[in-house]
Design a protein around this nucleic acid. Structure first.
Length: 938
RNA sequence: GGGCGGAUAGCUCAGGUGGGAGAGCGCUGCCCUUACAAGGCAGAGGUCACAGGUUCGAUCCCUGUUCCGCCUACCA
């Protein structure tokens, strides 16, 4: 235990310096690592499968192994850690399952870049060597993000750290693939998919980002084959694809064109003639010219139209999205143009085709047109629809139960407003393309018999990968098959594709717990309790986990899904390295401390709203940490002497007051955390600690502590320790390091604050009467301070005060607290009496109404000679207040003279209005008198 | 094109079930009052986007408008 003694204790013991000379500011740097070490060695993060306590579990959204902690991670994981620490302190058997994601495309890109820097390439290395290289890379850099999470204070169960490419998780992936295939929910087919010509792989629909751009709509003339005088005008945004057209569609009920259905047009720039077909689905009569070209190999709608009309598919682009020689040949493009077109990129091809069409009079017009452009979410390259054999998950049968689970409340989305989004997406979901043409990832467990496919398996890609044609028959199995079921030979080639990274992520909640084994972990911690995630991966990840969880465990993977917002910069812009507006959480932690960062993020996590983060805000919470630090210093300095064991009711009014307020704060924090209102919980803590505990309670406690030997001091010391220790526990989930550091220095029981019990509100401690009474005292003090502040009187100048009140009750209150008022309002003495007693000669006067409606008047004497200026300032303030009151009075009078209001408003509102009116009148009358007095004076 | 969210103090945002507008930061004034100048005390600052409606009463509920985000979509 000794090496972990906090700074407080070490310093005050090891050096004989007086306690007052403890560090004045909190230094997070030398605190954080020490306590994290301590927690880890003590094994506090580890969850037990043998515990009898009710479980609470969260699986981390696995960050990419290539990742470095960004502010989004910081938010996501701070919130998770708050929940986990809160529940752990509440006594739950808590598991926070950590891990990382192999991030197929992203990781492959990183390692490829490294190879290029070394002067070699992935292709030169070959698949096996390349994958080895990625593993080496992972071994070296893969846990950077893990270290960064630790820096953030994340209390993950690191003993259980997982990786999506681990053997266990890979086994789960294979198992799921095979079972889905057996159930007919996975199939292979040649279909049009989204293709990234830079990554050279297929992408799923949601991996395509749509960007609205100002494009052009081209009108092109297609003359009838047997009567060139008749021209069909088609409209397109992609004129270069016309070379691959295999039909033109018109609406069957469009009188302008329907007589042309069944005839043929000559496709410009080619030797081909293509049919005119009628298609009510594809064609919108209102749009463009009412006639559409059909290019089944390069457009999703056209692909489907092509199926309907059994049209041939002419693919003209290669995998790099360049016009391929064979494509152009198949398209029967005129020889003259073909030579100039070959190997051109899409934009170049478009320019040339348009130019050529125009030169020959086929171009009828160009108009501006807004359209959406699809881009690869990893590299931002424009995505092409590309015809190729791929693996798909038939998703509808999986989506339906996932819809139901949310509909019937087995899964709750928070905030609820995302529910419709989620449901809408799932109800309208399309099959999921899961194969990727990269090397890093889970290779698809499908094999092809070389013997049966002797003629089919010869072609290879430039990187040496064998091309498996769509008609090849896959054997899907958990391990390499021994014999071919058809020919019983044993020579196989494995499908070279790997699975979409999100395929393995979808299994995360149960694969990390050991599935398909029925492990104790799975029994205890599944379904998990809460998932905390950003809305950007609601579809990518959350929806798919629900589908897979239900399919393979029969249970939902989690009960609550808390969806937090994105972190943006002050301007509301998405943070990105290229814009240079990133706030790096690591440098924030260096500069302001981890606790300040965590508290900032928590306090800004309002539901359904993006977080616009400014460093000033973080600085503010760094100051908050320092404030707490100094409150702790104050308490430690004043701790000498016995502490009373007396029950609360025997303690002072202020002690009872702060206890009551503390328990309201406890109540508020717990309630808000229950509702995932991290912001409200954080704000309640901030408000209470700074503005009630420090600003008032610590100040009010000073006189009581002055006489160390007094019984009063013993009571107050006890209250200080009890309340502050409780407060630290209450704050711990938000600011784990600071609270541990201080807690260890305070009298406490237990080894660590992180396993101490979380405070619960004791309603018996709530005391309305005392809160009202102290509230009145605060009002009097503030009123008198205001008076002197307006006159610019320095705090060091003690003034004579007089308080008058007509009612005994009010005078008694003031008498009871006279010492407090004298001290806090900076008075030299205080005279209390009825309305007959005199004010000092040079005095400014004020008045206020107490909580029970009694009016009190007060005055503070000013130094001679300052009266003239003081009167003016005082006058204008009183005038202002007077007009406010007048407006208030008028408003309330109007209400109360309205018979509808009196008869229809609820009684308590009526009562409140009457009381307010009465008090306003009282104060108004008093103020008028004071003002008159001021005016009357020379 | 659909869907969702937002518009409240100079800035960033809170404001369960309608009943005297709040916080943080910033700003102004006075203060080094031995826990804290990363601080204390006090203060200024708002036709709650606009127009209607419901109601005794609307920042809150309803309708419409404008502007701004986000998600989604195959209108060539």
């Amino acid at each position: 235990m000794l090496p972990y003694l906090p700074n407080f204790v070490q310093k005050s013991k090891s050096q004989t310096m007086p306690r007052q000379q403890l560090e004045k500011t909190y230094d997070p740097e030398q605190v954080e690592e020490r306590w994290y070490q301590f927690w880890t060695t003590k094994g506090y993060f580890h969850a037990s499968v043998n515990s009898q306590a009710p479980p609470y579990s969260i699986v981390i959204p696995p960050p990419n192994v290539t990742g470095s902690l960004h502010i989004g991670h910081a938010l996501n994981n701070s919130l998770q850690d708050i929940l986990i620490r809160w529940r752990r302190m509440q006594g739950r058997n808590t598991l926070w399952m950590p891990g990382t994601d192999h991030a197929g495309i992203a990781t492959q890109i990183v390692v490829e870049r490294q190879l290029i820097a070394e002067g070699t390439t992935r292709e030169a290395l070959g698949r096996q060597k390349f994958v080895e290289r990625v593993w080496e890379w992972k071994a070296e850099y893969g846990d950077i993000i893990v270290q960064q999470l630790k820096r953030l204070g994340a209390s993950c169960d690191w003993d259980r750290l997982r990786f999506t490419m681990d053997e266990g998780l890979s086994r789960a992936v294979r198992e799921v693939f095979v079972r889905l295939h057996e159930d007919g929910l996975i199939y292979r087919g040649k279909r049009l998919i989204n293709w990234c010509p830079r990554c050279l792989t297929a992408l799923s629909d949601i991996e395509v980002e749509h960007e609205e751009i100002q494009g052009k709509l081209y009108h092109i003339r297609y003359p009838l084959a047997d009567d060139p005088s008749i021209v069909l005008l088609v409209a397109t945004t992609r004129p270069e694809t016309m070379l691959g057209d295999t039909a033109v569609a018109v609406h069957p009920e469009d009188p302008r064109y329907n007589r042309l259905i069944g005839r043929k047009v000559s496709l410009p720039l080619t030797h081909r003639q293509i049919p005119v077909v009628g298609d009510p689905i594809l064609v919108d009569r209102e749009f463009g010219t009412g006639a559409v070209k059909i290019t089944p190999a390069h457009d999703f709608n056209d692909f489907e139209a092509g199926e309907r009309h059994r049209l041939p598919r002419v693919a003209i682009f290669n995998e790099h999205a360049q016009l391929s020689p064979t494509g152009l040949q198949n398209a029967e493009v005129e020889e003259g143009v073909r030579g100039r077109l070959v190997m051109l990129s899409v934009p170049a091809a478009r320019a040339l085709v348009v130019q050529e069409l125009e030169a020959r009079g086929f171009l009828a017009g160009v108009e501006p047109h807004k359209m959406a452009l699809g881009k690869c979410y990893r590299c931002k390259t424009v995505v092409e629809p590309y015809l190729s054999p791929q693996w798909f998950v038939k998703i509808k049968p999986l989506a339906e139960p996932a819809v139901k689970a949310v509909e019937d409340g087995r899964i709750r989305l928070i905030p609820e407003s995302w529910t419709n989004n989620y449901l809408g997406w799932l109800r309208d979901i399309k099959d999921w393309c899961i194969s990727r043409q990269i090397w890093w990832g889970h290779q698809i467990p499908a094999w092809y018999c070389r013997n049966c496919h002797a003629d089919l398996l010869h072609a290879t890609k430039p990187d040496g990968t064998v091309i498996i044609p769509p008609e090849a028959k896959p054997i899907v199995a958990r391990t390499t098959p021994a014999h071919c079921p058809d020919c019983s030979m044993g020579d196989f080639i494995r499908d070279p594709d790997v699975l979409d990274t999100w395929f393995s992520s979808a299994l995360w909640p149960f694969s990390t717990l050991g599935w398909p084994e029925q492990t104790p972990e799975l029994k205890v911690f599944y379904p998990t309790s809460t998932l905390v995630t950003g809305l950007d991966i609601l579809f990518f990840w959350v929806a798919r986990m629900v589908m897979m969880g239900l399919k393979f465990t029969g249970q939902v993977p989690f009960r609550d899904v808390y969806i937090h917002a994105l972190v943006r910069d002050v301007e509301g812009q998405k943070m990105s390295k290229s814009k240079g507006n990133v706030i790096d959480p690591l440098s924030v932690m260096d500069r302001y401390g981890t606790d300040a960062l965590r508290f900032t993020l928590a306090s800004m996590a309002s539901p359904g709203r993006d977080i616009k983060l400014a460093t000033e805000r973080i600085e503010g919470y760094r100051n908050f940490a320092n404030k707490i630090w100094n409150a702790a210093r104050f308490i430690l300095i004043n701790l000498e002497g016995p502490r009373s064991e007396a029950p609360l009711r025997e303690r002072s009014l202020t002690d009872r007051w702060i206890t009551s307020r503390l328990h309201r704060c406890i109540d508020s924090v717990n309630r808000h955390l229950d509702l995932y209102r991290f912001d409200e919980a954080a704000n309640a803590l901030y408000q209470f600690i700074w503005h009630e505990y420090c600003d008032w309670y610590l100040e009010l406690s000073k006189p009581a502590l002055a006489d160390k030997g007094s019984a009063q001091a013993a009571h107050t010391r006890a209250t200080l320790v009890e309340t502050f220790e409780t407060l630290l526990r209450l704050l711990h989930p938000f600011m784990p390091f600071l609270t541990e550091e201080i807690w260890q220095a305070l009298p406490h029981t237990g080894d660590s604050i992180m396993v101490a019990p979380y405070p619960t509100a004791n309603e018996a401690a709530f005391d309305d009467a005392i809160e009202r009474e102290i509230g009145d005292v605060q009002k009097v003090i503030t009123g008198m301070r205001d008076g002197r502040s307006v006159q610019g009187i320095p705090p060091s100048m003690k003034l004579q005060g007089v308080i008058r009140a007509a009612e005994d009750e009010a005078r008694q209150l003031v008498e009871k607290h006279r010492d407090t008022i004298i001290k806090q309002a900076g008075l030299s003495n205080l005279t209390v009496g009825d309305m007959a007693i005199k004010y000092p000669v040079h005095a400014i006067i004020g008045s206020l109404v107490l909580s029970h409606g009694q009016l009190i008047e007060f005055s503070i004497a000013l130094p001679a000679g300052t009266m003239e200026a003081a009167k003016e300032r005082s006058k204008s303030r009183k005038e202002k207040r007077l007009s406010e009151l007048a407006a208030q009075i008028e408003q309330d009078q109007k209400k109360l003279s309205n018979p509808d209001f009196v008869s229809k408003a609820p009684p308590e509102v009526l009562e409140k209005t009457r009381k307010r009116l009465e008090e306003s009148r009282l104060e108004h009358e008093k103020l008028s008198q004071e003002l008159q007095l001021l005016r009357a004076q020379p």
